[in-house]
Computed example of a mutant assay.
Amino acid sequence: MKIIKKNPTDCDAIILMEELSKTLESITGDSGKNSFDPSDVCIPRSLFVIAYDEAYEPLGCGAIRPIDEDIAEVKRMFAKAKTKGVGTKILLHLESEALKLGYSTIWLETRVINRAAVSFYKKRGYIQIPNYGKYINNPKAICFEKKLL
């Protein structure tokens, strides 16, 4: 598997994010599209990546964008169904790249009802924090943090 930096307007990126949106809609009732602006990951200290298998089939995607000087936010994290380990590899790649870009912490948000995502992040060392930004006072949202240093 290879993880490659791409533009979020790339054809594979659009297809993966559409699949993510449909999946989120079925789990949470919200596609998450309103929480992501592709231009947010086309600025300095941000990136969008796609994971590919040996046949160059896209398996998943993820992105980070700056919250502030020290904190990056994970966005559009997705691995296709039945692609064991892909989500973990994408997340580890994003964490590694965030560290290289000078971040010390990663934040992210998911929905409380999305138990698989909540469990995924907890198993990978993320701890729950108070909801931040647009998620403050949103009882459906749950936010997490991981220190990279």
Rank of each mutant, 00 (worst) to 15 (best):
I71L: 08
S21F: 11
T110N: 02
K100V: 07
K75W: 02
D37N: 15
L47M: 12
T23E: 15
D70V: 13
L24N: 11
I3Q: 00
V86M: 11
R65D: 03
N137Q: 13
A81D: 11
I64T: 02
T9D: 15
Y52D: 04
K147M: 14
L108V: 09
V74R: 01
R76L: 00
C42G: 00
R45Y: 05
G87N: 04
T83W: 07
Y52E: 09
H93W: 10
K80E: 01
K89L: 14
N137P: 05
E145F: 05
G29D: 10
C61V: 09
P44L: 08
E57Y: 13
S31D: 12
Y121R: 03
P44H: 09
S21T: 06
I27Q: 05
P66Y: 00
R111V: 04
E19N: 11
T105N: 00
E54C: 05
H93V: 01
Y121Q: 07
H93I: 07
Y52K: 07
F120Q: 04
I50Q: 02
K123S: 12
I67S: 03
T9R: 09
Y103A: 03
F36H: 02
K2V: 12
E97T: 09
D30Q: 08
L59K: 04
Y103N: 03
A79W: 03
I64S: 00
I127A: 11
N131W: 06
K75Y: 06
A117Q: 01
N34L: 14
H93S: 13
R65E: 07
F48P: 00
E109W: 07
N137T: 06
I3K: 00
C11A: 13
I90Y: 12
N137K: 15
T23V: 10
D12C: 09
K6H: 08
N137W: 05
A117R: 05
I3G: 03
C143L: 11
T110H: 09
I71Q: 02
D10V: 08
A81T: 14
A63F: 12
I136W: 01
F120N: 05
I129W: 15
E25C: 14
K140I: 10
V49I: 12
T23R: 15
L92P: 02
K123F: 07
F36Q: 02
A116H: 10
T88G: 10
E145V: 14
E19H: 08
P44N: 09
I90N: 03
K84E: 14
C42H: 00
I43V: 15
E25W: 15
L20H: 07
V41Q: 05
K100S: 13
L24S: 06
K122E: 14
A63W: 05
E18D: 15
K82Y: 15
P130Y: 10
A55M: 14
